[in-house]
Design a protein around this nucleic acid. Sequence first.
RNA 1: GGGGCCGUAGCUCAAUUGGUUAGAGUACCGGACUGUCGAUCCGGUGGUUGCGGGUUCGAAUCCCGUCGGCCUCGCCA
Length: 595
Amino acid sequence: MTIAYNRRTHRCGQLRLSNVGESVILAGWVQKYRDHGGMVFIDLRDYTGVTQIRFNPETDPKAHTIARSLRTEDVIAVAGEVAPRGENVNPKLPTGEIEVLGHQCDLLSKADTTPFEVADHIEANEDLRLKYRYVDLRRPVMQKVFRTRHRIGKAIRDYFDENGFVEIETPFLTKSTPEGARDYLVPSRVKRGTFYALPQSPQIFKQLFMIAGFDRYAQIVRCFRDEDLRADRQPEFTQLDMEMSFVQMEDVMTVVEGCVQRIFKAALDIDVPVPFPRISEGEAMERFGIDRPDTRFGLELQDVTDIARRCDFRVFSEALAAGGVVKCIVARGGELTRKITDGLTEEIKGIGGAGLPVTKVIQGAGGPEFSTGIAKFIQPVFAELCAKVGTQVGDTIFFMPGRFAHVCKYLHYVRTRLAQIMELIPPNRWNLLWVVDFPLFVWDEEANRWFSTHHPFTAPKDEDLQYLESDPGRVRSKAYDLVLNGTEMAGGSIRIHRRDVQARVFRVLGISDEEAHLRFEFLMDALRFGAPPHGGIAFGFDRWTMLLTGQESLRDVVAFPKTQRAVCPLTGAPAPVGQDQLDELQLLIKANADG
RNA sequence: GGGGCCGUAGCUCAAUUGGUUAGAGUACCGGACUGUCGAUCCGGUGGUUGCGGGUUCGAAUCCCGUCGGCCUCGCCA
């Protein structure tokens, strides 16, 4: 008679001393076997943990014979009795005080040698892990990640449900929109020469839900962007997308703060305080050089343009003459070696910078003075500079002259690297903050035109509406980004709900009335028929999961992710299709890349 | 598209810098062993050194090309 594996009495991580004497049925994977010739021990694993099974040749010879043949990752069912381990308790296992005396053992599925070990701390190549992802996902750490991911999703759905939000699905086969990322396209079979685009986000649809009177909408939804991949970027990713009617910025932010509290509770059982601090985009750039600052450590940027103006240092004066600024970062303490500062300089050059002027404050013969690097150029302004940036003996100062945007870029890099090198980032800190007052538009030198900082449907601040045509760069938006430890976790805005304002914004963006009509006719139409004021936000769901589970790559929180070349090593996608399929779609593949 | 790192046994790595038969751990196979839990002990199988070409008496090692992986810049409203 075979074991009724469909009638498991417990999971493998459940049994305790209190179960001693019970007859149990367990099933799972063979984690480890220890064959002593007589006694055989099997560690049986499922998603809950591991239980040791003991097979005794004297009392259960048949089961023992089967057990001897078992190897790693075989799938078995075991019927037996829970027994205390007595002297042989294993304190490393939650089930370590007991074992199951295996009276019967069924081999349900024999396993070949797996490409890598099913264990938390493996060092298998990632492409190998992805090719055999079903083996990789057996590892306890991966099980934990995806179960946490599930709990975060459930917490989000529960929260929004309790707050009157409705989840409605939006189409995946939709229309390409101008601006934004490159679209994934799907050819239409029925309508020759036309294409659907997979959505980069359900942005317009959720606005239409508001216009449709749903009042509050939230969806956990897949989005698609055909851009190059990174450790934190996948071509398909999941967003929590939400939208609310008759609200101002504060209303959306308050709802989001409540949601974030629930997420932290679900994932880490941590209570985060609300409301989150706010900072303007301008202040964030000035102090941190980035619009998503990591506030877990200091090393803030300081402006020394005025002092630099009085230095006889060509690098400074050239930058200033070109309308630039000079800012600096002070690294406290004397542990920064020449090797470190030279290394940083090289890294800055590696990301396009000209260099990284540096100096140190040391105790000289006649008191504190600058030493090494650009010391001789700035020694004349020693007193002013030290007073302004508050340096002490032992500090290292990194300077960056140039255009404001470049100074920000490079000093943000220096700041982040210094925090790593100097180990200034405290563990287990979750610094959440809102960044607000973004400019509505950014000027693109190359394209010689304005682009939306967020997207073209973001509402301008009421008081800045008057500058829309005359001085677009001055217009601030009703947008808000949520930042966690220097990573953008969510971004949203109050939307334009008036057709005339939307038309004016399109015009600033250089989207002609004709093109706006072509691309967004349905939105412009919808705005005609009674659009309530509305706004919302979108969360990077994968990114939240990644940070809250402590993973370093988005690939570790996506079940079947793509590699850097957007390939799935498991399925082999993307792959060529048959000529019949191409014919049906009336598509021709060019002979070569240049053709 | 640019820059960097990498590719050797199923897996993780080594190979004295161009030199004899490419090694180790682990996994796997066989044997021994009744309390292990990283079991232990003995023995064994296992290699197109990613692929292609070149230099050389001789290439895992040097050169060229190519494929693949990771990080990164550009890109990502």
